[in-house]
Nucleic acid binder design. Sequence first.
DNA 1: ATCGCTAATGGACGATCGTCCATTAAATAT
DNA 2: ATATTTAATGGACGATCGTCCATTAGCGAT
Lengths: 217, 217
Amino acid sequence: MVKSDSSLETSAEKRTTKRDPESSRRALILATLDTIAEIGITDTTVSKIIQRAGLSRGMIHLHFGGKNQLLAAAARSFGESYFEVLDQWVQGAGDDPEAIITAVIRADLSETLMNVRSTRIWHAFRGAANSNEGIAACSGTRDKRLHYIINTAFRQIARDSGESEESTLASDATFGLLVLLEGMWVDYLSNADAFSRDVAISIVRRFIAGLFPGRFS
Amino acid sequence: MVKSDSSLETSAEKRTTKRDPESSRRALILATLDTIAEIGITDTTVSKIIQRAGLSRGMIHLHFGGKNQLLAAAARSFGESYFEVLDQWVQGAGDDPEAIITAVIRADLSETLMNVRSTRIWHAFRGAANSNEGIAACSGTRDKRLHYIINTAFRQIARDSGESEESTLASDATFGLLVLLEGMWVDYLSNADAFSRDVAISIVRRFIAGLFPGRFS
DNA sequence: ATCGCTAATGGACGATCGTCCATTAAATAT
DNA sequence: ATATTTAATGGACGATCGTCCATTAGCGAT
């Protein structure tokens, strides 16, 4: 009711009228993420954010209640965007667990998800999670979701390979893959130019192949 | 001449007189690192640092020229401390390259090097490296040194295994190990309680074992 | 046309930021 | 004992921080 009120609504996007709180919220979150990516979370101030968004000072307090809550909302939005893309790759992989794992790896290391902007933002939120509970919550949520997707697939692979359901193989593979992907993001962050996605994918797959002989070619 | 001036000098450490610039510098760096570990680099201010160090405001400008230079000095000090410990483990491993790799893994994942304080500090400096050149320089230095140690050992292992000197095996193993260790630090940072050093070591060794059949048991 | 609601504005506020410097005090040299 | 040197002090400074609120302005309802 907040969204689809006006009589006629064009297909693409809203008309740019002066009163659009939803649009303002999105603009503030986007400006926050861009500012963090560009100058770091330490130098991301209220003034810089509203300047980039082209809005007035009071908007942050009005729509989010304060800077910290805006940061938390931005972290949540960023995490959701990540899974929107990831889920698409996973759904495209079908039901085969090996294909799912491959899709997760390819997605996580793709230009769409792993780039200068996103690695900087993610790194910043990771650090801020220690002192901002809102950020910590959604940071943990992302980890849990990713963990679940990967672990489910590995457990099925282990089961298909004759391992007992509760074998440590699946949990070891899950842990190793998550750590490897996290490390890739850090490596990309500190040296994006020298980073090769193909090599990265190859390395990750070779690690998994060591745990599941015959799989992951 | 600044250090060994006074006539008699006790063996252990300096007397705690009121004038000791070297001691003041160390106190400021230590207070900086502790503050970053405790409340994050974003909230680490000049006031908090000098309060923790028990010194006066002017000391930072006097000894380092400003806050940014103090941060850079703290990053350098932190990196040096890391290698002091790592080098000890490596030297204790002797000349066997496989033992050297094992030592690097055990050292990097040891309580001494990987703990709540150090992972928080390292994560903060990684993020700050994007906007502070001094930090970026010493951050890159650490990576280069670690890369060199690991790569040298892997190349020798590859050579002993009959691979050609310039095979990609060694560089792949180096890349994979570094990424894995970096990922472990991130994983520890976001969930120190659930982290198991033994499992971590096992995972890392299993990855390497997949690249060098018969080695790393 | 008027009213009511609320998104939006932008300046005021006290607090705190990092820097700088006049001053004090401790150690050394004369 | 006195002078010189320099580590150390702590307050002043303007800038900027995040928050808040009195006010304006856009939109639907009456």
